[in-house]
């Protein structure tokens, strides 16, 4: 493997962790899908959630009233919570390590001793984070297809791709928060904690919104809203929602460049 630049090197650094994450996400998705034949028969679940008796449960399964159709099953069991969570955690891990991690390890001085601009280091590392997150997403998508094939589920590959794409963008959005905080402040743990807290906040805001009246208008500041509200598994991608996430990601990259090139670097 020839490591010609920071971008390739950053992906090379991730190769082992990427493999484990792919395996983990694949297992979570396929094992969950194996329960589909059992769940398909449990139509009483739909009735239980059709009433408003369990409002709190909706925080964890979303505003879903259908658990037994292929879309309902995948949404409620995987795409509402666990799969985007995995994408987010993965992306935050990479995002926080990109600049802040190198700074804390003392390798940033070493890297920048060579003729690279700070801007180029940030851009290359940001792109590497995006590509790593997309790789995980592709693996998740393939796992969904394999899982669906095993349990003989009828669902379109393109819809699965649409939902996965949204999930990956959501992951990158939160990874981007960790990235720019790390680039701006050079503190890895802080950027993980902050991005994680914002992730939980965003999730709760979006899922409690429909039930708590005064929260409703604020749902739109949660990235989760743009990921799940249009229900891509059923309706396909809502591009206007994707564009919101893409713009946020671009802004995060931009802020990372601007803040990183202005500040003093810490000694590792």
């Amino acid at each position: 493997m020839i490591l010609r630049n920071v971008f390739v090197k950053s992906l090379w650094d991730q190769k082992r962790s990427l493999a484990w994450w792919c395996l983990g996400i694949g297992l979570v998705i396929i094992v969950t899908m194996l329960f589909y034949p059992t769940m398909r028969e449990m139509t009483e679940l739909n009735e239980m959630f059709a009433t408003d008796e369990n409002p709190l449960m909706k925080v964890f399964v979303g505003n879903i009233t259908d658990f037994t159709s292929p879309e309902g099953f995948i949404n409620s069991q995987l795409l509402i919570f666990i799969v985007p969570l995995l994408y987010i955690v993965f992306a935050i891990g990479i995002g926080s390590g990109s600049i802040a991690g190198e700074e804390e390890n003392g390798t940033l001085d070493f890297l920048l001793a060579h003729p690279l601009t700070r801007e180029s280091v940030v851009v290359q590392k940001f792109l590497a984070m995006i590509i790593a997150a997309i790789s995980i997403g592709i693996f998740g998508w393939v796992s969904l297809i394999i899982g669906a094939a095993i349990v003989d589920m009828e669902i379109g590959y393109s819809r699965l791709a649409a939902a996965t794409f949204g999930g990956v963008l959501l992951g990158i959005t939160y990874g981007g928060i960790a990235f720019f905080l790390g680039a701006a402040l050079g503190k890895r743990s802080f950027s993980i904690g902050m991005a994680g807290a914002l992730g939980i906040g965003g999730y709760l805001l979006n899922s409690l919104g429909p039930m708590v009246g005064w929260l409703e208008p604020f749902r739109k500041i949660s990235p989760f809203y743009y990921y799940s509200n249009s229900d891509p598994l059923i309706n396909g991608l809502d591009w206007s929602h994707m564009v919101v996430l893409l713009v946020v990601i671009l802004l995060e990259g931009g802020v990372a460049v601007l803040t990183f090139r202005r500040r003093d670097l810490a000694v590792g």
């Binding site: 650094d13 390890n105 003392g106 390798t107 940033l108 001085d109 070493f110 920048l112 001793a113 060579h114 003729p115 690279l116 000694v267 590792g268």
Partner: peptide
């Protein structure tokens, strides 16, 4: 930086 060589104190390597 193109024209110099630099050894940091307490060097951190990959």
């Amino acid at each position: 930086r193109k024209r110099i060589g630099y050894l940091p104190g307490d060097i951190g390597l990959y």
